[in-house]
Amino acid sequence: MSEELKQVTHIDNVRLGEDEKSVVIIDQTQLPNRTVYLTLRTPEEMYDAIKLLQVRGAPAIGICAGYSIYALARQWEIGSYTEFAQKFHEQKEYLNSSRPTAVNLSWALNRMEGLVTANAGKPVSEILDLLGKECRAIHEEDIAMCRAISEYGLSLIKEGDGVLTHCNAGPLATSRYGTALGPLFLGKERGMNFHVFSDETRPLLQGARLTSYELQKAGIDVTLICDNMASIVMKNGWVQACFVGCDRVAANGDAANKIGTSGVAILAKHYGIPFYVLGPTSTIDLNCPDGDHIPIELRDPAEIREKWYAEPMALPEVKCYNPAFDVTDHTLISGIVTEKGICRAPYTESLAALFKK
């Protein structure tokens, strides 16, 4: 593996602090111009890091949440199990309220709380040790999942293919290789070459600031395009596959991802280009029947009007609608790539089968 590629795929984007009472993250809002590490110690700092997208990407959010609730628990001076469990539940609910769409957030927090509940009556010191092992296990499992997803995804493309991606689902958003970008990094490691078209991903520009940054640093041929240029590069025959991540997948295969993803899927369908969703099984929510039941986060209108500009690009009285995600209908998805394999339609059957293995 080249040194440049390793620096990208092994980036230390979320980790537990050395004192185990804090969490250290890369502030993704500062990239690509500055690499800034933040140390999160208080519940408010951890909440804001997720809410303000300093840590983002469904798997990374889950990892951060697991570390965060453990780091907070290490700070408490509570001897009784009852008090500890109550405090744990309160802080878990607070962190869980930071963002509604990515299911990994609640998944990781529920997993940690489930361990507390399962060990009711044990000394708090012993439960803390178990929680420390559990949050590390969440991270290690994600590393393994990303590698497996990358292997399955790589089987869908060949040398020289053009791949279009939307938002960012690389190492910064996950662990190691990433999900949607993972096959590209793994292919590069094996000497394969691809050309990637990276949608800028308005209004927060994750494709411009993060995806093109990761790919360029890794030595992968990448071209940044505005979101409304996807159609022309598809029409020109430059795209052989679309790879995107996901924040939640419903039981029927409908998938929520960054706003603009469903438009890419519609274009891909028109031009006969396969459209793949890549993500770990932790993003699959079998309790959610379809995309209509996925909560969609609405964000500050200022992100559209003024965030990246020297001065506002719209009058302050102009109304803005700023959903963070949209839902891609399952009929537009060629396959859902997980660490357990590639699911195909009908997704109600193939997704459910993953959890029976």
Rank of each mutant, 00 (worst) to 15 (best):
T179C: 08
I284W: 04
N287T: 15
S125V: 15
C167T: 13
D285T: 03
L172V: 03
G121A: 12
I63M: 08
C135I: 06
Y67P: 00
G178A: 10
C167S: 12
D227N: 13
E18Q: 14
K87T: 11
T338C: 10
S2Q: 01
P203T: 12
P280G: 12
N33W: 11
H195D: 06
G279M: 03
K21Q: 15
Y347F: 15
D247R: 07
S98A: 08
R136G: 03
A352E: 08
Y81M: 14
G253F: 04
R202L: 15
G178R: 02
E93W: 00
E45T: 08
P323Q: 08
I63P: 04
P295R: 04
R248I: 05
N110K: 04
L72K: 02
L105R: 01
T35P: 01
I26N: 03
G253K: 02
L109D: 02
R34V: 07
F275P: 08
D254Q: 14
Q7N: 12
V23K: 01
R190F: 06
S150I: 03
H139C: 10
L186E: 01
A60N: 00
A250S: 14
K21H: 14
C167Q: 10
M192D: 00
V239F: 12
I259A: 10
T101H: 08
H270M: 13
I143N: 03
A265G: 15
D27I: 03
V103D: 02
P280S: 08
A71G: 10
R41D: 05
L128Y: 09
I294G: 03
L95M: 01
Y309W: 14
N322V: 08
G207W: 05
E297L: 04
G335Q: 13
S125D: 15
P183T: 08
P123L: 11
L115A: 07
A71M: 03
S231E: 13
A302V: 14
W308I: 11
L38H: 09
A60I: 06
P183I: 00
T283A: 06
E45I: 04
T283L: 04
A268C: 15
C343V: 02
S150E: 06
T201F: 11
Y70G: 07
N257I: 09
G57M: 04
P323W: 07
G335R: 07
T117V: 14
Y94K: 03
K340E: 14
E90L: 00
T331P: 11
G182W: 04
P280Y: 07
S68M: 04
G114W: 00
I273F: 13
K356H: 13
E45A: 05
A345E: 13
A144G: 09
E159A: 06
D329G: 14
G57W: 00
L5V: 05
L131S: 04
P100D: 01
T348F: 07
T261K: 13
A73C: 12
S80K: 14
N110T: 02
E317V: 10
M234N: 09
Q86P: 00
P295H: 07
K21M: 11
L204M: 10
W308P: 08
